[in-house]
Design a protein around this nucleic acid. Structure first.
Lengths: 234, 234
DNA sequence: AGTTTCTTGTATACAGTATACAAAACAGAC
DNA sequence: GTCTGTTTTGTATACTGTATACAAGAAACT
C-alpha cells in the first residue's frame, strides 16, 4: 500500500488516539465520586449506599464496590455500622496540618513571585480577580472555589519553582475542600478577593516581606473560618 | 440523607451519565475503520493488516480482529489470499442499485420540499450553498463531501416525511462513498453546487415537477461520474 | 526443494463486570 | 426478649473482552 494510503489510515483512525487513556468503569466511578466529595457536592456526613449508587448509575455493584473501597482506603469514606459508607470530614488535625504547611509553602511561593515576576505576568491574575468579583457581584458563590483555585495556581506558577508547586499540589484536594467551605460565606468570599487584590499589589511593588505577611494573614483567616464552621457542626 | 444531598450526589456524578454509552474497544475500532472506509481515507483496494493495525493503535490484535471480521461480514472488506484484508469498492451493481433508489426517493423528497416548505426553511440551504462555494473557491475539496451531505440532509428534512428520510438514510454510507469520489473532481464539484442552486430556486418557486427533474438529472450526472471513475480504475 | 518471513487462526490466561445467593445488622411488632 | 422482615454488604460464579503465546498456512527468496 502506498505511503499516502498509510497516512490516510492514520488520519482516519485519529479518533482512536485516546486508546492509551482507557480506564475501567470502576476507575471512572472512583474519580467521579472523589471529585464530588472534594467539591463538596457530597458533603461530610453524607451517606453512600453501594446498591443505590449502582442503580442510579445503571451499572452493576462490582465497579461501584471497587470505587467505594478505594475511597475508604484513601481516607475519604468510612464504613457505617448500619450499612453504607459515610463521607469523612477533614479532622481538626487535618486543618492544623494543612493550613500549617500551606502557610509555609504558599507564603514562600508568594515571596518568590514578588521577586521573580515580569510585568506582563500579572495580567492573568488581574483577570482572575475581575472574574471572581463579577461572580461575587451576581451572588454566584458556587463558581468562586474554582476561580479562587485558578488565582492561586497562577500565583504558585510565578514562583517558577516546579518542586514547590508540586508540594503544594499534594494538598490540592484538601485545600479545595476547605475552599468551598470558606467561600460559601459571602463575607468571607468578599474578604478573600480583597486579600487577593492586596497580594497582587504587593507583588507588583516587589514587596516580598509584605506579600508574605499578607498570605499568612489570608490563610490564618481562612483557617479560623474553617474552625468556626466545624464548631457549628458540633 | 436529605434530598438536597441526594441531588448533589446526582450532580457530582453527571460525568458518569455516559455509562450507558459504553462501547467495547473492538466496537470503537470497528466504527472508526468503517468511517475511514466510508470517507475514502482508506480507499477501495487499500490493504489492512491485522497485526499492523494493532501495533499502530497500541492495542492487542483481539479487538482489531473482531472489528475486521465484522467489517468483512458487512461487506466492506474481503480477505486476501496473500494475507490481510482489502477494502472493497462498491460494485457496478451497487452503483446501479443505489442511484436507482436515490433517483426515486430523493426526487420525491424534493417534490415534497417544493410543496411543503415555509419561506424561512430555505435559509439554512442557502447557507450551505454559500459555505460550499467558499470551500470550493479555496480549492478545499476535502470539506465538500460533508457540506454536500448537510445540504441534502436539509433538503430531505423539508419533505417532512420521517419514513422517507429513514429509507434514504439506509443508503447513507454508500451515498457518502460515491459523494467523496465524485467531488474529488473540481469540475464535478462546481456543477454540483450549480445544481444545488437550481434546486433551491425550483423549490422556492414551488415548482415540484421542475425540482424533481433537476434532482434526477443531478443524480444521473453523479452516477455517470462514478461509472467513469470505475473505468479509470480498470 | 528448502528455508524464512508474514499473517491469520486458535488456545489460554487474566481483568473487569454482572448477577445470584449468603450473611450480618437493624427496625418493628408482639 | 424473641421473631420476622428489610436493608445492605460479602462472596461466589459466570460471562465478556482483551492480551499474549504458539500453531498453521501461504508467499517470497535462495
Amino acid at each position: 500500500m502506498s505511503t499516502g494510503s498509510q497516512k490516510n489510515i492514520s488520519r482516519g483512525l485519529e479518533d482512536l488516539g485516546k486508546i492509551g487513556e482507557r480506564k475501567s468503569l470502576g476507575q471512572h466511578v472512583f474519580e467521579n465520586l472523589k471529585g464530588a466529595i472534594v467539591k463538596g457536592d457530597i458533603p461530610p456526613g453524607g451517606r453512600l449506599i453501594e446498591s443505590r449508587l449502582a442503580e442510579t448509575l445503571g451499572i452493576s455493584r462490582t465497579p461501584v464496590r471497587e470505587a467505594i473501597h478505594k475511597l475508604e482506603r484513601e481516607g475519604y469514606l468510612r464504613k457505617l455500622s448500619r450499612g453504607g459508607f459515610s463521607v469523612l470530614g477533614l479532622s481538626l488535625e487535618d486543618v492544623e496540618e494543612t493550613f500549617g504547611i500551606r502557610g509555609v509553602l504558599e507564603s514562600y511561593a508568594a515571596r518568590l513571585a514578588a521577586q521573580n515576576h515580569r510585568k506582563t505576568d500579572l495580567k492573568p491574575l488581574e483577570k482572575k480577580i475581575k472574574l471572581y468579583q463579577k461572580h461575587l457581584d451576581c451572588k454566584d458563590l458556587d463558581a468562586l472555589p474554582d476561580i479562587n483555585t485558578e488565582f492561586h495556581d497562577l500565583l504558585y506558577a510565578l514562583s517558577r519553582s516546579p518542586k514547590l508547586i508540586h508540594m503544594i499540589n499534594n494538598l490540592r484536594d484538601q485545600i479545595y475542600r476547605f475552599r468551598q467551605l470558606i467561600l460559601r460565606d459571602e463575607k468571607m468570599a468578599k474578604m478573600s478577593n480583597e486579600d487577593h487584590k492586596d497580594m497582587l499589589e504587593r507583588i507588583r511593588q516587589r514587596d516580598a516581606d509584605g506579600v508574605e505577611r499578607l498570605v499568612r494573614d489570608h490563610l490564618t483567616r481562612g483557617k479560623k473560618a474553617v474552625m468556626d464552621s466545624y464548631d457549628e457542626l458540633e
